[in-house]
């Protein structure tokens, strides 16, 4: 048998989801093949357990492990790194837990927090350097200022308040009921220094941050906010956000 045919057959036997069959292998190999089958399944499920401890605590161990097994069958690993196995797990959970949509949102957040742990490093403007960089700005400079937002920033709409869930899980705080947000928000995930972090943003701030990340000038961000949300005080509100983004370590530079 050619090596490539043997390897296709062996991998098929090891990763097969059904009941073990002999796969055409001689009886002398059956016990050993079962060792590889067990190791394959245990390693992949163990990887998802380690990557999503909060989801596992929220879903319950047995339900989570069944979902992890389903995910590995539906989306068998193709990357050289096990870290990639969690990609799309939020979609798997959304499909398997239609009555608990907060679980998929928690999963997305947990995945992004883990992913950003090893995101590229980059310098950020702190309050002092931002003040220095803008000290001589004219009104027109402020209007035309474009922010360079931390490149690892990811955002998505959120319908459930995951912040108390995140805090409670694993902290010996009694489980909380899943809390649907009165108004959908935006969760932003980025890395401050070496620590991944997230914040739930009001929808208007989320829109402004998305504009900033897309290179929209600060003056235009203020105008859009004034037109869509509040006519009075739009510039002041955008200024507050700018200060908060700087404190959060979200601004990598100015253009």
């Amino acid at each position: 048998m050619r090596l490539i045919e043997m390897q296709r057959g062996f991998l098929g036997t090891v990763s097969s989801a059904g009941e073990p069959d002999d796969g055409g292998w001689p009886p002398s190999m059956h016990a050993g093949l079962q060792v590889y089958r067990n190791a394959y399944r245990a390693r992949l499920i163990g990887c998802l357990q380690e990557s999503f401890p909060k989801c596992r605590a929220w879903a319950g161990d047995a339900a989570f492990d069944a979902a992890a097994s389903h995910h590995c069958i539906r989306q068998p690993p193709t990357s050289w790194t096990l870290d990639a196995l969690g990609a799309g797990f939020d979609a798997t959970l959304a499909e398997l837990f239609p009555d608990n949509p907060e679980l998929a949102e928690l999963c997305w957040l947990e995945w992004q927090m883990a992913r950003l742990f090893t995101a590229p490093d980059g310098a950020r403007l702190d309050a002092g350097s931002f003040t220095e960089a803008t000290a001589r700005f004219s009104e027109r400079d402020w209007e035309e200022m474009r922010l360079v937002i931390a490149p690892e920033l990811v955002t998505r709409p959120l319908f459930y308040d995951v912040t108390p869930m995140w805090t409670a899980i694993g902290a010996d705080i009694p489980p909380l009921p899943n809390a649907r947000l009165p108004v959908p928000g935006t969760v932003a995930v980025w890395r401050a220094g070496l620590e991944p972090c997230f914040r739930l943003l009001p929808d208007d701030e989320g829109a402004a941050l998305a504009d900033a990340a897309n290179g929209v000038a600060f003056g235009e961000i203020c105008r859009r906010h004034a037109e869509s949300v509040e006519h009075e005080g739009a510039a002041a509100r955008c200024g507050q956000w700018l200060g908060r983004w700087t404190m959060d370590g979200l601004i990598a530079g100015l253009r």
């Binding site: 050619r2 090596l3 490539i4 043997m6 390897q7 296709r8 062996f10 991998l11 090891v14 990763s15 590889y36 190791a39 394959y40 390693r43 992949l44 990887c47 068998p76 690993p77 193709t78 990357s79 050289w80 096990l82």
Partner: peptide, 25 residues
Amino acid sequence: CWTGVDGGNSHDLLPLPLTAQALEI
């Protein structure tokens, strides 16, 4: 060892047949 084939990955150290063909590869 080998860990996968055709893009699939077992994330395990799978055994090689100890043959001249495998040795060449």
